[in-house]
Design a protein around this nucleic acid. Structure first.
Length: 357
DNA sequence: TCTGGGGTCCTAGGACCC
DNA sequence: TCTGGGGTCCTAGGACCC
């Protein structure tokens, strides 16, 4: 046997709920739902539910109010980002300590690990043992010959298992599944694919990449075709991630109607965003104000701004953008995002998959 | 059922320039 | 006189991820 390169995708099982159970052992075996401030009367959604709560049909993204109604006996907990970040850092440190591992962090509870090995399954189990020993958390590991295949493999390993997906078994395993199962294909794209007669991964894999260009554009069309085949990069990239921007948003428990309320809210958001930006020491080059009118229409208003603007000038420009808000329409959310100048050596989008860090 | 908060990237279309 | 064609920048909006 030869040692060859492999991509591993490590994914913690019910991460947030598991961290909460670790520090509240009495919750083990109970339906635990983490979201918002843990108050089901507020506008908030579920971040993670334990397997016991999922059995009632609760999942992440679901309004907290609905989740609490489905599981009256559930333990509701507020999101404690600091605790999860700390646990996450321990997990990532464990991964980096593995022999020859190149680690690319995707989120709190996920990472790609590039390795060279004869027996990737053995390596994967070694990772599971190391993570469990150091953090008391269980993880699943997907093994693949590309990033996309490794990422998709993990689901078949859950919970606490290992699964391998390569060019050889990709279509056997994934071919009959709906395109929505693919990483980067959601409800909208799968719907548009269906209109072109493409329902399954196998049908997408068979599609001529160029035939998708009229519908999805010159980049995304061919990208979706390659997703269907499981093809793509197999390079795990551990260059440090550099934020392109920072944003804050607030959902108001009762809708805003007064101009003075809007002024105050934007001032608050700008202050918070500028604090994050200041910590990076890079200039702001753009602002985007997001407005969600009740019941649920979202508008954005963007402006480029000169790099030379100081704090007060950025704040003034943010308030300027707020002038575009339609008077008299009730507002349920305001958000502000600051785009920052990028250093030359920062990691560029190495995969067209949006939202992947 | 009624929809958070933090991110990233792509595309269409208008403005502007030559 | 009513109107080309290409390039680039900017804004708005959309889609996706965890």
């Amino acid at each position: 046997m030869n040692s060859i390169p492999w991509v591993l995708h490590v994914d913690l099982d019910q991460f947030i709920a598991a961290v909460e159970v670790l520090r509240h052992p009495e919750l083990a075996g109970k339906p635990v739902i983490v979201g918002g401030r843990g108050d089901p009367t507020e506008r908030a959604v579920v971040s993670t539910a334990s397997y016991e709560a999922r059995a009632f049909g609760v999942g992440s993204g679901m309004p907290l109010r609905i989740a609490a109604r489905k599981v009256p006996d559930a333990v509701l907990l507020p999101v404690d980002a600091e605790a999860y970040l700390e646990a996450s850092e321990n997990v990532m440190a464990t991964l980096r300590a593995q022999p020859g591992a190149v680690v690319q962090v995707l989120g709190w509870d996920e990472a790609f690990v590039g390795i060279t090995a004869e027996d990737p399954e053995a390596y994967a189990r070694q990772i599971q043992v190391a993570v469990l020993e150091r953090t008391q958390l269980h993880c699943s590991v997907g093994i693949g010959d590309t990033l996309v295949r490794a990422k998709n493999a993990t689901d078949f390993g859950k919970p606490a298992g290992v699964f391998r997906l390569t060019k050889e078994n990709w279509l056997d395993v994934m071919g009959a599944k709906p395109t929505k199962e693919l990483w980067g294909v959601g409800n909208k794209i799968s719907g548009r694919l269906a209109k072109l007669g493409i329902q399954t991964v196998a049908e997408l894999a068979a599609a001529d990449p160029q035939s998708l260009v009229p519908e999805f554009g010159p980049k995304m069309g061919p990208w979706y075709a390659s997703l269907g085949r499981g093809d793509g990069s197999s390079t795990v990239d551990d260059t440090p991630w550099v934020a392109r921007g920072h944003s804050r948003e607030t959902t108001f428990q009762s809708n805003l109607t007064e101009p003075s309320q809007i002024h105050d809210a934007v001032t608050q958001l700008a202050g918070d965003v500028l604090k994050d930006v200041a910590a990076e020491g890079r200039p702001v080059i753009g602002l985007t104000l997001k407005v969600r009118y009740a019941p649920f229409t979202t508008k954005t208003h963007a402006r480029k701004i000169p790099e030379t603007f100081d704090r007060d000038e950025v704040l003034a420009r943010a308030l300027d953008l707020a002038g575009a808000i339609e008077a008299g329409r009730p507002i349920r959310l305001l958000g502000l995002r600051a785009e920052m100048a990028m250093p030359d050596d920062a990691r560029k989008g190495h995969t067209p998959t949006r939202g992947g860090w």
